[in-house]
Design a protein around this nucleic acid. Sequence first.
DNA 1: CTTTCTGCAAACGATTTGCAGCAGC
DNA 2: GCTGCTGCAAATCGTTTGCAGAAAG
Lengths: 159, 159
Amino acid sequence: MILNNSQLAARLGDDVSTDLHVTAAARLRSSRERYTGNRRALVELLSDAGQPLAIRDILTARPGLAQSSAYRNLVVLERAGVVQRVASADEFARFELAEDLTEHHHHVICSNCGKVQDFTTSPGLERTLKQVISHAAKQTGFDLESHSLDLIGLCDTCA
Amino acid sequence: MILNNSQLAARLGDDVSTDLHVTAAARLRSSRERYTGNRRALVELLSDAGQPLAIRDILTARPGLAQSSAYRNLVVLERAGVVQRVASADEFARFELAEDLTEHHHHVICSNCGKVQDFTTSPGLERTLKQVISHAAKQTGFDLESHSLDLIGLCDTCA
DNA sequence: CTTTCTGCAAACGATTTGCAGCAGC
DNA sequence: GCTGCTGCAAATCGTTTGCAGAAAG
């Protein structure tokens, strides 16, 4: 029995992840790119992780995946708007699902080991942030797309 | 005529920069490190720039400085608490003076060229941020030291 | 079939390091 | 003088790329 992308997605997860894969496939298709097994696996992994992953994390989780494929596919997925690269303090690039595919959240970053973890804030703060952003846009001349609030400290392991 | 560190600092800038060099020298001394010409030049440069600089910016501004010295001294200055590495979206490490040596500020980052620029926010938002931080500390188990609010967008050149 | 992906291995580029000579204290 | 700093050049390591075969549509 052969399953198409939607059927396969339905088998693999709940409604949320079905939507996720359908959306991802759609975004890739509109860039004339394919939603292959490797790409699906990356999206699946990032969705399950619930926190930004470095390439080493990804390769550890999927030992069969070639490094070059991971890098190449993350570039493709980023261009298609499915994943985004997150700024990090250490030398490793980290990736998570695009903003509009996940709940809006921020990051705490361990200044010792570089580990990144998600957290969410109150609607009140997000409202305040929106004001700051429009103010900063005028102040700097930047055309602003998104924001990220990073808290820096030591994770429970490194403390 | 030979000048010592303090005298030299007094010649080079105003009160603010004198204090800066005195503080930098003190922090290095307490780590058993010297405040050499190269290190002074880095601090001077970061202070004048008013925005985080990448190594290439630094080497362009100081053509005589060896790359390895720039890297090594930035590590030393970072360990002494004089400068800090800032998270950036591209592959280049960027540095600025440590938080407590400058006015508290945040960054706008160009998602296209990686350029980073400073901006400041109202005391009101900073107060809100403080609340968020203590809340997030409980939520994540991290021991939080600082925060950074990064706004992502396109700079006027790239827009 | 044609076009896009994949894995491998080599290339690339930012950063780090070993070493011999120089400078600060 | 002893210790730490500097510049150079070689090494390192995350990331990118060329290529020939495999897979998707």
